[in-house]
Design a protein around this nucleic acid. Sequence first.
DNA 1: CGATCGCTTGAGCAAAATCAAACCTCGTGG
DNA 2: CCACGAGGTTTGATTTTGCTCAAGCGATCG
Lengths: 246, 246
Amino acid sequence: MAIHLIRKLEHFTKLSSEEKTSLERTAAQKVRQLNPREDIVYEGDRPSQINLILEGWACRYKVLEDGRRQIMGYSIPGDICDMRMFILKEMDHSIGAITPVSLAEIPKDTIIELTDTYPRLSRAFWWDSLVENAISREWIVNNSQREATERMAHLFCELFIRLRMVGLTRDHSCEIPVTQADLGETLGLSTVHVNRTLQELRASNLIVLKGKALTIPDLEALQEVALFNDNYLHLNRDGHEMDANE
Amino acid sequence: MAIHLIRKLEHFTKLSSEEKTSLERTAAQKVRQLNPREDIVYEGDRPSQINLILEGWACRYKVLEDGRRQIMGYSIPGDICDMRMFILKEMDHSIGAITPVSLAEIPKDTIIELTDTYPRLSRAFWWDSLVENAISREWIVNNSQREATERMAHLFCELFIRLRMVGLTRDHSCEIPVTQADLGETLGLSTVHVNRTLQELRASNLIVLKGKALTIPDLEALQEVALFNDNYLHLNRDGHEMDANE
DNA sequence: CGATCGCTTGAGCAAAATCAAACCTCGTGG
DNA sequence: CCACGAGGTTTGATTTTGCTCAAGCGATCG
């Protein structure tokens, strides 16, 4: 069930079969199920373990005192939330389930053991967290410089590529299980404007969105209107020189 | 000259005098001077060393194909740009000097040696980079949910506190050596609107800004209008249990 | 079968962008 | 010493983008 994580990490470096089975075993140890809208961790929590998303979508978010809510990132299968508990005492944001979520709960010590035993895994985790940071930075650009249509297009490009990395697309399609209100809280737009922007993207045949099923007939075209540059996702196997040779 | 870095890291854990002199020595090894608007690293670069800001301000930024520019973070004295080169091959953004900047160039191997010798330093660097990520996430919230006045107020609160951490404030004042155009590219606002927003903050006596000198007569008041919560800066000495006892 | 949640539409409004010009400072060179 | 120019700030007028408010619609589910 750690298949998504493994697929993702192998965009950085090829893992040995021993490393893969270790990951599989670790991820199977303790699994927790959550319902949509349930929180995985709360702002202010002092988490003592790492959560790996096995199935479903979650999001990181903050709520301002007056109720405004901002989604700062999506966690999809294969994503780890979060390594930072090794150092930081308190969560400065919450993580909530969007769909039903199945989580592997991995104790701190298990991770330490794993990374001590397999330095390649340690580096791959590091890569993963650096890419996550790069995504945060790109979101600053997206929500600050791009206008609604570009912004939405950019988000769809990113999500499609991330889902493809972990094997969750088919041809030109994937599932985007978020509501238009969620999209608004992601992109800093009102729900009404999200709706109208989606209509615009549909009208230009850039996307087909029926319920949760997103189809991108021409990814390049969508990337163009989004001014999308995938370099921040670091897909070029930066760790290939440490590939396992099997 | 690594004094600012040391001050910052000691908000996480107290360093031993040996660790401090090692940092000082490392930072004095090779120093480079840059002029305002000169780039420290370019998007696409493959950096081979770490740059520590000793004096002056720099910023991380991206430029879209059509010229729109977004500043994604400020680097002030004591900031490290950037540790990620251990893993990632190519910079996905640029870093440019805002003021004259003096940089310590630290070779990869020196950092490895340092962190291998002093695990406490290693953890402190890790903390530092996690706080940097938390700042990025907060900027997403800031530029997406807050309106112009709140947004600007929030930025000033953050910068003031960060400068205070490294000893670069006096009473209620500090230097903010950025132009209004820079502020616009930071906050996702037009220069004209930045100007008007500043006037508003001045009119409400929330800030005094003369040239580059910023005075915040009542930080709490400014934090209130900004809906500012400092938890994301992790100032509470999360590493105090590993303090050096000297 | 009503209630709830999510999506859609319309009308009016507010925030911020754009465009254009003036002004101010400061450093440089005649 | 003064003129000039560049970079930065300020102001006014107008337009655009996206927000708010309000209501209706269409599924889905107990």
